[in-house]
């Protein structure tokens, strides 16, 4: 009964994520308005109106990205990633790489932990590099603006996705064929029709979700046909909820019990943290049909 009223770790992730998200969004949105106050100026609505189509387009892209990247990043990673940005060119590949290296199964709580850690570290490191760059900008500008080096910085995405493609396509070649062929055809045809690569930059925002949908549909078809191995292995135990919900957040557990006026129980919970921490993994591991984290590492 008591346990039912407690918030799980997962619930708290959503609660904290929303609080931090709102705070960050308010601050980010405040920047132009604070500048208006500081300089005592208003908006040039003519210029703003000329940017409206861009705003609408990127709001649509933002909506599509939300539904595309949220399942990949997990809860904590989503709240953090959608504040710190640079999703497709940094955060998503980074989280994906770290999950792969750690040998965790995507969608599990271990994957959630690894994804959140990788996005957090990536955000902090990016901030540090940028701060360093801003401090040293007068020294770095001639280097970065050097025409000979420009191609290196213009080709980060192909360099990033080349390595990733080998790993993922080789591991999942059956479900890769349809989306890869389709995407190649779309982009190559668009390029020859327009005679330039300009359209690719606009298309990619739309084609990521299209690629995801096509892959899901073709995978489902192959799965139903039995081409991806034996069908239907229902999990004997509910996975994520049992892991996420069975072990409530310690601090909230104590707080919730205290809120109920059950000081003795709260004290007990507080003192029992260590024992709880020892018991929890054992209980969780029993629930997990697949390898725990350490096992995943050993595979390599």
């Amino acid at each position: 009964m008591k346990r039912n009223i407690l918030r799980s770790f997962d619930d708290n992730t959503h609660l904290f994520g929303r609080i931090w998200g709102v705070v960050a969004a308010v601050l980010i949105i405040a920047f132009p308005f604070v500048c208006m106050a500081i300089f005592g100026v208003g908006v040039d609505w003519k210029i703003f109106a000329s940017g409206l189509s861009i705003i609408v387009m990127y709001c649509a892209v933002g909506a599509v990205e939300t539904f595309t990247y949220t399942p990949m990043l997990g809860s904590g990673g989503t709240y953090l990633g959608f504040v710190t940005g640079n999703l497709s060119n940094l955060k998503v590949p980074c989280a994906l790489n770290c999950m792969e290296q750690a040998g965790v199964e995507k969608g599990t709580e271990e994957a959630e932990v690894i994804s959140t850690i990788s996005i957090a570290v990536s955000s902090i490191v990016t901030m540090l590099i940028i701060v360093l760059g801003v401090v040293l900008i007068s020294f770095l500008t001639p280097i970065f603006e050097n025409e000979a080096l420009a191609p290196a910085f213009d080709n980060v995405l192909p360099a990033l996705f080349g390595g990733m493609a080998v790993v993922y396509i080789s591991k999942n070649w059956k479900i890769s064929v349809v989306p890869c062929v389709l995407m190649l055809l779309v982009f190559i045809i668009a390029s020859y029709v327009t005679g330039s690569g300009d359209l690719a930059g606009t298309l990619i925002g739309v084609m990521v979700p299209v690629g995801v949908i096509v892959t899901l549909l073709s995978s489902r078809y192959m799965y139903k046909k039995g081409w991806l191995g034996e069908q239907g292995t229902p999990a004997a135990q509910p996975e994520l909820p049992s892991v996420a919900d069975a072990v409530p957040d310690e601090e909230t557990e104590v707080a919730a019990l205290q809120a109920l006026g059950e000081d003795a129980a709260a004290k007990e919970a507080s003192e029992g943290k260590e024992a709880d921490a020892k018991e929890a993994p054992a209980a969780d591991n029993a629930d997990k049909a697949d390898a725990p984290e350490a096992k995943g590492e050993e595979k390599k």
Partner: peptide, 12 residues
């Protein structure tokens, strides 16, 4: 999900 994203960037 991940392969859908990678395939789009392959095309890109």
């Amino acid at each position: 999900l991940f392969l859908g994203m990678i395939s789009a960037f392959l095309g890109y």
